[in-house]
């Protein structure tokens, strides 16, 4: 009995020591810094305009955070594999996806679930093209995804002749406007995706291999990591998530709108970089990307609440990106 007690005490001791080490590690990490910045920003915005904390506003912020957050997770998976990997098409894919899902349901009377699956297959297919273009044809992702940025946006406009597709089924609108226990459905989708992404990134071999490829692709090939397959998968994941965001946005706006999602790719990249992802690949944080997306959303919301012109939003975002990347480069240079 006495022996058992000692073992239990030892185990508890080891566990609490481990927890302390974990907390210390987190406090010293970039993730903690970004979380602190987010809290400071929220406090500042709330002090300037207490309406920030109204339930309605928090729900709006949540819905927008979901959009940027899901895109940031996808973008993070792409950027981490390195070799200049980036996905510039996410904003246009958002528009195309929203238009297509509306088109399928309203014009072709395809059942909702089937329409959603079809759209996700199409955007994943675009991701497959981006991935194969990089891995098999050696075309820089900058070029292919920039091409899709123009093509997908153009296609969305051609399909709709520039007009939104309306009269979407009520059950579909739940995906963008619904609440479960006061929490917007998009936020629940974001948290689910984040949980899957965290699991994938930290608890399976793939996360480790993605970072390995991003850091030293030649070494990754030499140790037998399936570089072509994994690099391709990240683009499929990213554009799958872009498709999902398009569906959420269409449901939120009650229409398939070809003009939505402009510059969303930039928001996604910024969120990812603010969250600690190195644009050179190899280093990334899913938690950081979510916090980065939250910061961008709060800035966006604060500018609205503080009555600052929408034109300033792009200037603010651009400044945040440049500052975040500069800090990131300086920090890495210092650590090198």
């Amino acid at each position: 009995m006495g022996k058992n007690t000692i073992i239990v005490e030892e185990n508890v001791g080891a566990k609490s020591r481990k927890t302390t080490v974990g907390i210390t590690k987190f406090v010293g990490s970039g993730d903690f810094g970004i979380l602190t910045a987010l809290i400071a920003l929220i406090v500042f915005t709330g002090l300037m305009n207490p309406r920030f904390f109204s339930i309605y506003n928090l729900q709006t912020v949540g819905q927008q955070w979901a959009v940027f957050g899901i895109l940031a997770v996808g973008e993070t998976f792409v950027i981490v594999i390195g070799g200049g990997a980036i996905d510039l098409s996410l904003g246009s894919i958002t528009a195309l996806s929203g238009v297509l899902v509306a088109l399928f349901m309203v014009n072709y009377h395809i059942p909702m679930i089937l329409s959603i699956i079809l759209v996700l297959l199409i955007t994943s297919g675009i991701g497959l093209w981006h991935g194969l273009a990089m891995t098999k044809l050696d075309i820089p992702p900058f070029v292919t995804t920039l091409g899709t940025l123009a093509i997908a946006r153009g296609a969305a406009s051609v399909i709709t002749h520039g007009w939104p597709i309306i009269n979407l089924p009520n059950s579909f609108l739940f995906l963008g406007q619904g609440m479960i226990l006061g929490m917007p459905v998009p936020v629940i989708l974001l948290l689910t995706i984040a949980a899957v992404a965290v699991f994938f990134f930290y608890y399976t071999k793939y996360g480790s291999y993605f970072r390995a490829i991003g850091e030293n692709v030649k070494a990754a090939e030499k140790v037998g990591i399936a570089v072509v397959k994994l690099r391709t998968i990240t683009f499929v994941l990213s554009d799958f998530l872009g498709g999902l965001v398009g569906i959420i946005v269409a449901a939120r706006l009650s229409q398939g709108q070809p003009a939505v999602g402009t510059m969303y790719e930039l928001y996604a990249i910024a969120a990812s970089v603010i969250g600690g992802t190195a644009l050179t690949g190899g280093v990334a944080s899913i938690f950081g990307a979510l916090m980065g997306a939250a910061i961008i959303t709060v800035i966006w919301n604060a500018l609205v609440l503080l009555g600052i012109s929408a034109f300033w939003q792009d200037i603010a975002l651009g400044t945040v990106i440049v500052v975040a990347v500069t800090f990131d480069v300086l920090r890495r240079r210092k650590n090198a």
Binding site: S208, R211, A212, E215, N216, K218, A219, A220, K222, V223, G282, V283
Partner: peptide
């Protein structure tokens, strides 16, 4: 060149 991944 050891084929290592420094950040890992």
């Amino acid at each position: 060149e050891l084929a290592l991944f420094p950040s890992l």
